[in-house]
Amino acid sequence: MNASTNNLPLTLRITNSGFTLIELMVTIAVLAIIVGIAAPSINTQLANQRVKSTTATLANALKEARVESVIRRQEIEVSYDDESHTIMIKVDNGSNEDEIATYQYNAKSIIDGDDDIKFKPNKTADDETYTICDSNEAASPREITVSKLGNVNTQLGGSC
C-alpha cells in the first residue's frame, strides 16, 4: 500500500491531504439546516417538561396537604401565587396561618384554577380541577383533578 502512494507525483500527494473550503462550507450549511429543523422540536420538548414538572409539584403539594390535614386533624389550605410562582401549604390556627411548606414552580408555567383549595380532617376536600399550561402554546397541557374525597389525579388534556 505504501509503495503505490510513493509512486504518485508530489503534487497529487499534497492536494489529497485535508478538506477544501467548499467541502467545509457544505458541511456547515448542512449542519445549520439540521439545527434549524431540530430547534422548534427541542423548544416544545422543554415546554412539555416544564408543564410536567409543575404538574408534579402541584400534585405532590396537594397530596401532602391531604395527609397533613388527617395527621394534624385540622383544615389545611393549598394556594398558589402566579406572580411569585409559589405553591403554599398553610394551616389555619384561628387568628394566624402557619405555613407548612412552600414550593417554587417555573415562571413560564401557568396554573389555571381556583387560587386555593382546602383539605378537611375527615378526608374530604373541595372539588377542583387545575389546568397547567406553558407560555409556549405548542406544549401539551395537563390537568389535576381533586375529588370530594380528596383524591388527586393527573392526566393529559385541558385547554389553555
Rank of each mutant, 00 (worst) to 15 (best):
R72Q: 14
I76W: 05
K90Q: 12
T102E: 12
S84N: 08
I14V: 15
I117D: 04
N136A: 08
A3Y: 10
Y130V: 12
V35R: 04
E137T: 09
S41K: 14
N153K: 12
D127T: 02
D114A: 14
A39M: 13
T5M: 13
P40R: 08
V78M: 06
A101T: 11
N48C: 08
F19N: 02
R73S: 15
D82L: 14
I132W: 03
T124V: 15
D116C: 04
S135P: 04
G94R: 08
V30R: 05
T55C: 09
N48E: 12
A47R: 02
A65T: 11
D98R: 06
L31P: 07
A101V: 06
G36F: 05
S159L: 14
Y80A: 01
S140K: 10
S135I: 07
Y105N: 03
A3E: 14
F119I: 11
S4Y: 07
K108G: 00
L12S: 07
T131F: 03
S95K: 12
A65K: 08
V35A: 15
E137A: 15
D115H: 03
T15P: 00
T20L: 09
I42T: 05
L46K: 09
R66Y: 05
I22R: 09
T11A: 09
S84R: 12
T27W: 05
K118T: 15
A38G: 10
S4P: 02
I34P: 06
V51G: 02
F119H: 06
